[in-house]
Structures are given as structure tokens and as C-alpha cells.
Write a protein that binds this DNA or RNA. Structure first.
Lengths: 326, 326
DNA sequence: TATTATGGTGAAAGCGATTTCAACGACAGG
DNA sequence: CCTGTCGTTGAAATCGCTTTCACCATAATA
């Protein structure tokens, strides 16, 4: 492996000069030229490990996600990856498989390991999380949850759910049911349900608490909850779900119970899943700019790292949403 | 930041002893105990950067994928991540956004940067790719394509497509069309089409070359190709697609042209997408163990790295498949 | 002419681990 | 008593880069 010293010798300069050449310090034109040629000749590439040890920066960003194979998450990571690549960083991906304590584990791992910053695609934020985030030695940006005192990029789930509820209340005749997710997930659990309830109430069609079920983000859980709902309350005519994935499950359940194609106008979701939209022609749902949230969060993080002072810095950013098919 | 020397001083030993303690070298029981306590007391964690510089190993694996937000890829990465986590490695993810030259770029980047090995979720393998893989300084395993002389984990797309074609030929009455992808993607493009054609032929119902279209892996491209097919050849009664995603697009096209719900028994795909299956009740498709391929490839790579000699080493591994809903 | 900038330069000091190496005490065998 | 072996040990040499620092020309200013 050719090292900096070799290049320096070949070019007849000191390695300090080579380093300066590489990092844009004082260097005369002719030496720069000689160094450039020596580098080309030898095919030298600098060891990022030595560099990392010396500078303390690895140009690595840790990204913690709850589940890699989910459309929303993969769109977010696509956005993160875009920015990272453009700005000369790389992504260290950690998948927690929906286990919130593995988030903590990785938060810990990443600090003592080689990352310059962290993007956490958050689900549940416990006190332990808050503490871990607080005491994190590298900058960290959250996506998907709004946490006081932490930098975050999120969507206003309450407001979106409110609008969806209000819009649906008018269009649906008959009873509306709701399949949510755990309220420990503040955004997708608590905010969406509360917002939806408030929206329905505002439109004069409050949600019957007996018609609320809990799913677990999966298609099957949506299916199961819907089947149960349909047999417990056969007069339900619409099932709103906290995610498009669960909505797909509910759709299948309705189709099974009431005949194929019936479900399509009887469920709503969150997330504007492309598959779902194509296959159903579009159920009522909320479109979030997932890719954008990845982009924004990463830019925010990298700005902080690269010391772009500007107006920005680590802060909180609420992104817009869009009601679809209502 | 507490470093090894601090721990050593506190424990009254040399840092060499601490290092040996950490790495399992000669150390007496009482010193080991003292070191252990000193570490606990100080909360010492060793700098992976210094370690990487000294040992030349970073415990990082580069993973190159064509597109992060696709179900197959995210299942593969889920598998990769599982094994990596279990075996003490971390994943450096690179997303090429379907640009094969960015694969080369990353292959290059990863070699001179800090990875111990590479998993390449491959699409098109050009000669340049072959050369890059050949000359790669770290071990590399391919997923999804069979390349002579390289370690790879793949599925037999030809055989699977053949079986699907043969099975469908009997069940479908009327003309069958095919929407494929670029043949530069040997597995998903060339092999699937060839196998499918051969399967139909074997069942005495050969594919009309005029009914073949080319998509680009996206839902929209499947939709577009199907629309075009349906108007160019209105007597087509079945559209086989090279991916489930394109099949979803074709489904929408058929529904639009011939009425809702019509498409469901008139398309087939590859990949056994969960959404598609739930929403349609299941179109004919091929189930691949994507997660398994990630797991197997990663184990293979890590075995090679960790010097597990065994029967294994870098080799090629063909995984099975399963016809669904035929 | 005597100063002070100013653009360039290389020697050398780390960054924080791992690993070689020589050495040491103790103890067994000859 | 001498020698060899065994289990341990710490000093010191790297790993490959960045960065300070002192220093040197040369040009600009007083």
C-alpha cells in the first residue's frame, strides 16, 4: 500500500506538503504539480483510518431505523443517502427491527464508534431515549417524532389526521371504526388517533370508542383487527387505519367478508403507499414527503457538523402534508 | 475521553496488559480483575479508529444496493443486517439509484475506504464490473446474479420462470403477453424472459414475440407497457411481468381498460410482494427467499473474513424458489 | 537601511490502539 | 547448581496521517 511518505519522496517534498496539497493549505504551484503527478503515478489514496484517528472525524453518519423493509422508511433512507452522498459522507445503517431498546443500544454503539452524527428515525420516545439523546456526544437529528429540546424533522400527524377525519365524516354514511397503533408511538399512535377523533367530532360525527382497535404496523395485524371489528360490529361501514399497510390488511378483510372490491371505498390510511394507490385506484390517505424529511434532516445535521453557522443549526422543522383521494 | 493509558495507570499495569486483557492474551487473574474494575470505573471504550489504523480492520461491511425502496432489496438488507449485527460488524450502505456506474464508483470508494468486505446486490454486470470485482482488494459477494469466478448467492431465475411459464400455459386460455426488463440485467431480464418463453413452449403455447414489451422495474412502467399492449393487441388475455411491481402497474391498466377487479386473474409477476398478495388475493408469482439470500451471502463473506476455513470459503450458492398461486 | 508582513516549507509531535521483543521469576529436570 | 521451559510482563515501535511550530526567503513598509 503506497502511503503519503512515498508520494512525498517521489515528488521531492515533505509529507506535510502532500497533506497540505490534499487539504488545501499553502503550497506553491510547481510543488503542487509535482505532487499531483506523483499521486497519479503511484495511484495513492489516503487512508481514511489514519485520517480518522488524527482528525477525530470519520465522515460517517449513523442512521437508525425501526424497520428497513417498509416503504416509508426506505423512502426516508433514500433521501438521507442522497444528501450524504452529495456531501461526501457515508451511511452506517442500523436496523432495530422495531425494538426500541435496540435503538438505545445503537445510540450507544454509535457514540463510541466511528460516527460524526446520527439520524434517528424514531418510533417510541421513552425517558430513556430522551436521556440518551440529551447526553449524545455527537449531533443527532430525529425524524418522525417531535421531541422537545431535540433537533427533529417531523410531520404534523395530529393536524393531518384531523383534516382527514373531518373530510371523511362528511363523505361516509354509517359507522366509522379506527385501527390504530400503540400510543407509545406518539406520532403514529397518539397524534393520529387524537387528531382523527377530533376531526370527526368537529364534523359532528364522533368516533365510538368501542370501535377502536389496535394493530402493530403490519398488514396482518390490520387484517386481524378488521376481521374482528367486522364480526363484533357488523354495521361498521368504514375503517380508518393509522397506516396504509394496515389499511391494506383491512381491505382484504372487508373483501373477504363482503365480497371482492367492496373494501376499496371503505378504508383509509396514512402514508400514500404507491402499491396501494395503484391497486385500489386510491383510498383516502395522507401523503407525507418522506424523502424530503430524510433530505432535510440530513442537511440539518451536516450543516451543524460542517459548521455552517447561518440561520440554521440544529432545530425543529415541521413538514407539510397532503390529503389524498378525499 | 478516557483512553487505554488511563485505565492502565488506574489498574497499575501497562497499556499492553490492558490490550491483552481486551483481546484475550496472556494475563494473570488478579491483573485481569484489576483491569476489569478500572474499565468499569472509568467507563472506558476503546477507540475503533485507533484500532482500525493499527489492525487494518474496521469491522465494516460495504453493502451496495440498486435501490433502497424496493421490497426485495429491503428484505435482502434486512437479512444482511441480521447477520452483521450478530457477528459484530456494521453495515455501510450505498444506494446507487439504479445507476450501474455508481456501483463501480462505490466499489472503488469502498476499497480505499474503510470496509473489510463488500456485498453487492447486483443488477447489470458489465465487463467493467467483472474487472472491478476481480481486482477488488477485499472479499466480495454478489447477490442476485450468477457471475463466473465470483462468489455469489442467487436464485435460478431461468428455472423459476420456466416452471411459471409451463404452469401458466395450461391455465390460461388466449394470448399471453410479457413485460420484461432490460436484458443487461441477466437474471431479471434475460433469464426470466428466456425461461418463461421456454416454459410456454414446452407446454405447447409459445410466446408471440410481438407481445413482448420492456419495462423499467417501476410500477408506472408496468402500467404504461400494459396500456400500450392492451390497445395494440386487444385480444391479449394474460400479461406476465418480470417483477411484481410492474405486475401491479399492469393490474391497474387492465382494471382501467376492462373494469375493476378484472386484472387480478390476468397478470403474473416475480417476487411475491406482500402488498400485492394481500390486495389481490394472490396473483401467480415466484417466491424467492430474499432475506435468506442476504443471510447466506453475509455469512459466506464473514466466514471468509474471519478465516473460517471449513468446507466453505467464497463460493457460489443457488437458492431455491417457490411458485405461488398457480 | 531596518523592520514587518507574507507565502511557503519540513521536522517532529501526536492521535490511541496493537504487537513484537527482551526479560523476568519460578519451578522442574538433569 | 545449572539449564530450559512456562506463564507473564512492560517498553517501545508502529500504523498513516494532520498540524503546530519555527524558520526562511522575499516583498512591502517605515
Amino acid at each position: 500500500m503506497v502511503k503519503m511518505k512515498d508520494v512525498a519522496e517521489l515528488a521531492g517534498v515533505s509529507s506535510a506538503a502532500v497533506s497540505r496539497y490534499l487539504n488545501g493549505g499553502y503550497i506553491s504551484a510547481d510543488k503542487a504539480e509535482r505532487i499531483k503527478q506523483a499521486i497519479e503515478l503511484t495511484g495513492y489514496v489516503r487512508s481514511s483510518q489514519a485520517r480518522a484517528l488524527r482528525t477525530g472525524s470519520t465522515k460517517l453518519i449513523g442512521v437508525i431505523v425501526p424497520k428497513i423493509n417498509s416503504e416509508s422508511v426506505s423512502r426516508i433512507t433514500a433521501g438521507i443517502g442522497q444528501v450524504l452522498g452529495r456531501r461526501g459522507y457515508q451511511m452506517l445503517l442500523a436496523n432495530t427491527d422495531n425494538a426500541p431498546d435496540r435503538e438505545l443500544e445503537y445510540l450507544d454503539l454509535f457514540q463510541n464508534h466511528p460516527v460524526d452524527g446520527i439520524v434517528l428515525v424514531a418510533t417510541m420516545i421513552t425517558d430513556e431515549h430522551r436521556r440518551a439523546i440529551e447526553s449524545c456526544r455527537v449531533p443527532i437529528v430525529l425524524i418522525g417524532q417531535h421531541v422537545e429540546g431535540a433537533a427533529c424533522v417531523y410531520h404534523d400527524d395530529y393536524e393531518a389526521a384531523f383534516e382527514l377525519g373531518r373530510a371523511l365524516a362528511g363523505r361516509v354514511d354509517g359507522k366509522i371504526a379506527y385501527i390504530g397503533v400503540t400510543e407509545e408511538d406518539r406520532a403514529a399512535g397518539y397524534d393520529r388517533r387524537r387528531g382523527f377523533e377530533a376531526g370527526l367530532r368537529a364534523a359532528g360525527n364522533p368516533l365510538d370508542a368501542a370501535l377502536i382497535r389496535l394493530g402493530s404496523f403490519t398488514l396482518d395485524s390490520g387484517y386481524g383487527a378488521a376481521r374482528e371489528l367486522l364480526s363484533a360490529a357488523p354495521d361498521v361501514s368504514f375503517i380508518a387505519c393509522a397506516t396504509d399497510t394496515m389499511a391494506a390488511g383491512a381491505l382484504r378483510a372487508i373483501d373477504e367478508v363482503r365480497g371482492m372490491g367492496e373494501g376499496i371505498h371503505r378504508v383509509s390510511g396514512f402514508g400514500d403507499n404507491a402499491f396501494l394507490s395503484a391497486l385500489t385506484g386510491g383510498i383516502p390517505t395522507v401523503h407525507y414527503g418522506y424523502l424530503t424529511s430524510g433530505v432535510e434532516a440530513t442537511n440539518m445535521l451536516l450543516d451543524a457538523l460542517d459548521g455552517v453557522e447561518g440561520e440554521g443549526g440544529l432545530r425543529t422543522l415541521k413538514l407539510g402534508h397532503q390529503l389524498m383521494n378525499v
